[in-house]
């Protein structure tokens, strides 16, 4: 029951009208999985997924913020769907106490990406039990001409249970 309620919140309030991941008229941003549960002390990976519609993606500047801070972001890795050289253009700055990572930046060299693209993978460590939201932050995702394609506004909800 609780899981269903959370899913409804994610679909209606945060991800827009299409909860199946299909492309709609404008580019959209997702966190995958949008819901997760794990036990305290374990690690979960969340992918940042962009559905570009007719747009293309050349670069991004993203961060994550966990609230309440029961999950600690400890790694952000470029995803080969988007990344073409194996490294982030700029690694993020981690704030353990603030449960955030900011300024993860990457760029594609040459042709832009389009379609359904996984941009990066965030790894979170469950430090305490409770329900937390993982939100995206940062300057956003931009196209080849530098124009903003998608603002960072996706959310994932993760429940951490005691071991």
């Amino acid at each position: 029951m609780k899981r269903a309620l959370l899913l409804a919140l994610v679909c209606v309030g945060l991800l827009g009208s299409d909860c199946q991941g299909g492309a709609v008229g404008t580019p959209s941003l997702w966190l995958d999985p949008p819901l997760a549960s794990l036990t305290e002390g374990s690690v979960v990976s969340v992918d940042v997924l962009v559905v570009t519609a007719s747009a293309s993606i050349q670069a991004y500047d993203l961060g994550v913020q966990v609230s309440p801070p029961i999950l600690v972001p400890f790694a952000i890795e470029p995803h080969p769907d988007f990344d073409d050289d194996g490294v982030l253009f700029r690694p993020p700055a981690f704030d353990v106490a603030g449960a955030s990572a900011t300024g993860a930046v990457d760029v594609r060299h040459g042709a832009a990406a389009s379609g359904t693209v996984r941009l990066l993978r965030v790894r979170l460590w469950a430090a305490a039990s409770g329900v937390a939201e993982v939100r995206l932050s940062g300057d956003g995702i931009v196209g080849p001409d530098g124009s903003l394609v998608v603002s960072p506004s996706a959310v994932a909800t993760i429940q951490v249970t005691p071991p």
Partner: peptide, 20 residues
Amino acid sequence: LDGDGVIGVRDLARLGAAWG
């Protein structure tokens, strides 16, 4: 590259698009 007074992801995208 976009002359907006800040060097950020928008400039990086332009450089990436011009790569090569």
